[in-house]
Design a protein around this nucleic acid. Sequence first.
RNA 1: GUGAGUGUAGCUCAGUAUGGUUAGAGCAUCAGAUUGUGGCUCUGAGGGUCAUGGGUUCGAGUCCCAUCACUCACCCCA
Length: 419
Amino acid sequence: MIKAITGTKDILPSDISKWKFVESIIDKTMQGFNYKEVRTPVFEETALFSRGIGEATDIVSKEMYTFLDKGGTSLTLRPEMTASVVRAFIEHSLAAKQNLNKLYYIAPMFRQERPQAGRLRQFHQFGAEAIGSTSPALDSEIIIMAYDILKSFGLKNILVKINSLGVPESRENYKAKLREYLQGKVAGLSEDSRKRFETNILRIFDSKEECDQKIMQDAPLLIDYLDEESLKHFESVKALLKQAGVPFEIDPKLVRGLDYYTKTTFEIVSGSVGSQSALCGGGRYDLLVEQLGGKPTPGVGFAAGIERILLACENENSLNIPVESIDLYIVRLDNGLQPNVFDLGLHFRRKGITSEFDYLERSVKAQMREANKLNARYVIILGGEEYQKGELVLKNMLDGTQENVSLDNMEYIANKFAG
RNA sequence: GUGAGUGUAGCUCAGUAUGGUUAGAGCAUCAGAUUGUGGCUCUGAGGGUCAUGGGUUCGAGUCCCAUCACUCACCCCA
């Protein structure tokens, strides 16, 4: 038997209502903030991601699905969306059409990691990017949108964590200080952290190893070395979040794994999923556009993992999905009327009234059972004496009442579903 | 990439310690309950190469080995 690739999942009809519901809330919220949807190809030239996300990051160095096409070009299935959105922004000169572009997406991403709870190889993210302004209002807006959407899913056990990474210069200053602090202590670090000391020193803060955490407890914090402008920016972001009623926590150790972040970074974590608790993450990237070959343009954005959110919703039992139902089921008393049933069904279907009938020549009882299983609001029973008299039986499945309706008064039935 | 756990019906699981006739249950599916009407109830039916391959044995779902798959955790991230 051929099975789906490791780390990929089919979304079956029984799950679709959940996804549609989630997507509709995302659409509604994003549009309320006047973000416009954008769709980009699932694969891009590999260089886009290695340059955008950073050669040394885990995503680029070991998690990408990269392959050569027949022309010998190295292509990669997108592991995240920001680089692609920025590429499209530059390629189509969106900046020329308006100063500020507010974009959002809902799309599949691909990373070749070992699957576990809340982590798949093909997974779905939604997110937003506001490109073209340094205003802290946009940092806040991005965080508020993410928070509002999660709240709309009924999630309670969530925490917003924010931090500021400052501008590159202040960060370099700080890194030097941190290196100085750690210089004599390297031997006490875990193996991974010793590597990070060379490659990405800030990430040592993320380590869960006890020995690392002990050493990092007294380490200097980035936030104390922020430049004045970044600090001011950070204060504005915090003030706006407070104003919006979004509870948050400052996490000076929140360092994100993508290279392009500057100033604000944030994460929303859930206590209701396994170890992959980050539902959502993002931040400001004022240098990315230029880095990818565009004119210097600031930006800020976030991405959220839909499967993780669904997992959290399931564990908190927070999603209230309406049960699926259909409008009409047409029962036939004798098989000879099959063409008439088909015709009648088509009549209502073309009016947008969701209708179904039996294709398997099953008994009346079986047809009624089917109607009930489908949650049909009304059932038409066609055949027998009534049919001889030019009538059909219309049964209301909610209260069980039924009435006879003349076959040339289908308006009457259609009106049951009006409005 | 590293570690641990689990693979028995469409789904959730018994059965494996002490190997022994035709491998069970619940849910789901289908059919029926005097034949023209759903939900509840009752009755019945279908559905399993017990993950795969090898080994031990008179005999393996059960013991041993290998492989594969899945799950969780590390790592990293959404």
